[in-house]
Design a protein around this nucleic acid. Structure first.
Length: 453
RNA sequence: GUGGAUGUAGUUCAGUUGGUUAGAACGCUGGAUUGUGGUUCCAGAGGUCGCCGGUUCAAAUCCGGUCUUCCACCCCA
């Protein structure tokens, strides 16, 4: 072999065994989405760069994969831009398309573009790959799938509650025990306002988000480094120390941030949401987590994050409400809320906990051994009958040595093999071999269908 | 984007202070066994030692660069 072929950094091939498992996850998620009245859409892998740029912050723009214009794009670049060697300026002249970075922004574009054909509230799901030019790491790839569900055009908190029901049902079906953490951006805004650092809400939430990971001391250090006043940090401490159940936390918090209009509104929203959830009889645990911030800055209301119990892993699902996502595309006052399931991480959790159903590796149920032309002709009608009965069946395409054909069945974990040679043909029967026990029986075509059904 | 580790057969890995023809296990192919696999035995194929350059009589081994994969940070699913 000369030079081995390879694939780009951070991308992966999926083997048949992996695909069976991935499809198990996608199918489970899709089934639940449909159960709650969500409908699928797809959008192109590439979007106009103008749709994508500026939606994910400065960092996000850098992580966008850009697509080179077709044709002789260099000749169209003006001389001064070319000589300046400024990547940003040059990019805008040689690239006008990019690969999608997430599914939410393309969805917002979709809603605005098709607003007259859509009936609101619009409940859609979308399962497609997204691309980020990030440096790959454990559980982080440059190409990965997102499974988004959003409902847009309704401000009711029932939508939030229903999304949490969906989360509950998906993970119940996948047999993953989870804990759902819930917070509200308005509460975070209220906290920032109360401690007198309204403008620094992003820095404050990002720092608070790390509380569990790096500890209180480091969080305070980081806040200080970001320019938050010592006085404000002092005022923040009692909030970070809040203890007790959700109701008592909300009660205490209500008093602390009572002077903040949006803060109080956030508390009210949480109270309503939790009262819904308590009536829904969920299997998963759910709790208010004031340290939950989530990076994306378009969230304006509830924020949701799901963690798997018993596994050290980042969140496997997350989302929230965004009041004005379509505004940037010219459609005002359309509120949406959605969550995204991280398929790759769910895959890792299922692998670690050994929760994939065992039969999912079984694809073919029966293999017909090929003895030659006459035998082939004898087997083909039977093969069709089995397939017509919904039994996964195949015939070995060449009349190769027995050993080779049996080995093929073995490697593919095919549980049954049919042997039909001269004596079977004479008797108008088939020899069915159980590959696990080695047991062989001579059966009629009717019996064959019955046994394999 | 910053810092650290890594790269030898299809796979997982050995390879001495630089020294003839770079090894093992598993896997693969063939045979023992022309209609019976998973076990066993025998034989065989398979490597520009990630790539480029440098030091040296001599480089898988030392040096520089580059790429890959992995880990941490930033950020995120």
């Amino acid at each position: 072999m000369a030079q081995k072929p390879s694939i780009p950094k951070g991308t992966r091939d999926f083997s048949p065994a992996e695909m069976v498992r991935r499809n198990y996850i996608f199918d489970t998620i899709k089934d639940v989405f449909r159960l709650y009245g969500f409908q699928p859409i797809e959008t192109p892998a590439m979007e106009n760069l103008s749709t994508l740029m500026g939606k994910y912050g400065e960092e996000g723009d850098k992580l966008l994969f850009k697509i080179l214009n077709s044709g002789d794009f260099v000749s169209k670049v003006s001389d001064d831009v070319y000589n300046e060697k400024d990547s940003v300026k040059l990019t805008s002249q040689i690239s006008e398309k990019g690969l999608r970075y997430d599914l939410t922004v393309p969805f917002a574009r979709f809603v605005v573009q098709h607003q007259n054909e859509i009936t609101f509230p619009f409940k859609r799901y979308q399962i497609q790959p997204v691309w980020r030019a990030d440096r790959p790491q454990k559980g982080r790839y440059r190409e990965f799938y997102q499974c988004d569900v959003d409902v847009i055009g309704s401000t009711s908190l029932l939508n939030e509650a229903e999304l949490i029901q969906i989360i509950d049902k998906v993970f119940k079906r996948l047999k993953i025990e989870t804990i759902v953490k819930i917070n509200n951006r308005k509460i975070l805004a209220g906290i920032a306002e109360t401690i007198g650092e309204k403008e620094r809400i992003t820095d404050i939430t990002v720092a608070i988000d790390k509380l569990e990971k790096i500890g209180l001391e480091k969080v305070n250090e980081e806040l200080s480094a970001k320019g938050v006043s010592d006085e404000a940090i002092q005022k923040l401490q009692p909030i970070l120390d809040l203890e007790g159940d959700t109701a008592s936390k909300l009660g205490q918090l209500e008093e602390i941030i009572s002077t903040s209009g949006v803060g109080v509104q956030g508390i009210e929203e949480m109270k309503t949401l939790f009262s819904y959830l308590e009536k829904m009889n969920l299997a998963t645990n759910f709790e208010l987590d004031l340290t939950l911030a989530r990076g994306l800055n378009y969230y304006t209301g509830a924020i949701i994050e799901v963690k798997a119990k018993d596994v050290e892993m980042g969140s496997i699902c997350g989302g929230g409400r965004y009041d004005d996502l379509t505004g940037i595309f010219g459609l005002k006052d359309v509120s949406g809320v959605g969550v995204s399931f991280g398929a790759e991480r769910i895959y890792d959790v299922l692998t670690q906990l050994d929760l994939f159903p065992p039969e999912s590796t079984e694809t073919t149920k029966v293999l017909f051994v090929n003895f030659g032309e006459k035998e082939e002709a004898y087997c083909l009608p039977m093969l069709s009958k089995l397939r017509a009965s919904g039994i996964n069946a195949e015939i070995y395409p060449d009349s190769a040595k027995m050993k080779k054909q049996m080995n093929y069945a073995n490697k593919k974990d095919i549980p049954f093999v049919v042997l039909a040679g001269e004596s079977e043909m004479a008797a108008q029967k088939f020899t069915l071999k159980n590959m696990e026990s080695g047991e062989q029986t001579l059966v009629t075509s009717e019996d064959l269908i019955k046994i394999l059904s």
